[in-house]
Each structure stands twice: as structure tokens, then as C-alpha cells.
Simulated scan of single mutants.
Amino acid sequence: MPNQVVVAGAVIRGSTLLVAQRSRPPELAGRWELPGGKVAPGESERGALVRELAEELGLDASDVAVGDRLGGDIALNRALNRTTILRAYRVRLIRGEPHAHDHKALRWVTAAELPDVDWVPADRGWLNDLAQAL
């Protein structure tokens, strides 16, 4: 089976990064992550990220600019010969204000605050890259 790709957006405004608090599943509820989601068949990674940011944050395609990849791939739950690959992209917020449609809460954090965020385990792999991006 092919790999499933999940894209995450490092949404940056000025020198702050948007982080989203998960409401589910129970083992991750309350922890923080970069917003994003699964790439659908036939969809580009950047297209999937724009769609996910619209669904999760209420941001239109004209509100954000998806840029270059950030950090390396993170492999998740290898099961039944299928690996889920997590990929992050830099996203510049052009206008608009994100709202939590799919998360418990949103907040903006600085580079200095990154280590103190209660991250979901997978997103911890990007902390150095996120700090450099800010």
C-alpha cells in the first residue's frame, strides 16, 4: 500500500507561530500541533494544506501563502506495510484571523515559547526548524 501523506502548516505572522490544541483523540486531546491534515488522492500537498486550513481555521486560499517545506519528513504509525508521512510547510498569513473550527483552542507563540508548548509527539521533531523560521 502507498504511504499516506499528512501535511501540517507552520502558519507564521510576524515573529509568531500559530499552534492548535487538539480536542481528540483522547490520548492527544489538550496537546498542541501545527494545523493540517491528510492529502486526498489526486490532491497536491500544497492544495491539501490550503483546504485543511480553510476547514480547520476558516482561512480562504487568498488569506494564506504556502511556501517551502519546513524540516524533514516524520514517519508515523508504520502498520500493515503502510507508513503515514508527516510533512510541514511554511505558511504566511496574508490577512484574516484564524478561528478554531476543529480544535479546542488556537494561540500564537514565539520562538522562545516553543520548548514550553505541550506538543503532540510527532510535531516535536520540527522544533529547531520552527525556531529558525521565526
Rank of each mutant, 00 (worst) to 15 (best):
D63R: 05
G47K: 00
H99G: 07
A54L: 09
P41K: 10
D73Y: 01
T84L: 12
G37V: 03
L70F: 00
R87P: 02
R46T: 05
R82W: 14
R82Y: 14
H101M: 15
K104G: 03
V64A: 00
G71Q: 06
L76D: 13
E33P: 05
V66N: 01
H103G: 01
I74E: 02
R82P: 11
T84A: 13
L34H: 04
A100H: 08
D102N: 06
E56P: 02
R46F: 02
S62R: 14
V91C: 10
T83L: 12
G96I: 02
V64T: 00
N81K: 06
V39S: 09
E52V: 12
E43A: 06
N77H: 07
D68N: 04
L80V: 12
L49D: 02
Y89F: 11
R82S: 09
P41M: 12
G96F: 02
H99I: 11
V91P: 08
R95I: 09
N77G: 14
S62T: 10
A88W: 03
S62L: 14
E56T: 05
R69L: 05
V64M: 00
G71C: 06
L57H: 03
G47D: 05
I94H: 03
L86P: 04
V64S: 00
H103A: 14
K38M: 08
E45I: 05
L80I: 11
D63K: 04
R95D: 08
A54K: 15
G37R: 06
G36C: 13
I74R: 03
A48P: 15
K104Y: 03
R87A: 04
E52M: 05
E43H: 11
D68H: 01
G37P: 11
G58R: 10
P98A: 05
G37M: 05
L34R: 06
E97Q: 11
I94Q: 02
S44W: 04
E45M: 03
P98N: 02
A88S: 08
I94A: 15
G96E: 01
Y89T: 01
G72Y: 07
R90N: 09
K104I: 11
G72F: 11
S62W: 04
R78K: 10
G37Y: 06
D73G: 11
L80Q: 13
A75Y: 10
L80P: 05
E33I: 11
G47V: 04
V91R: 02
H101V: 06
L93A: 06
E43T: 05
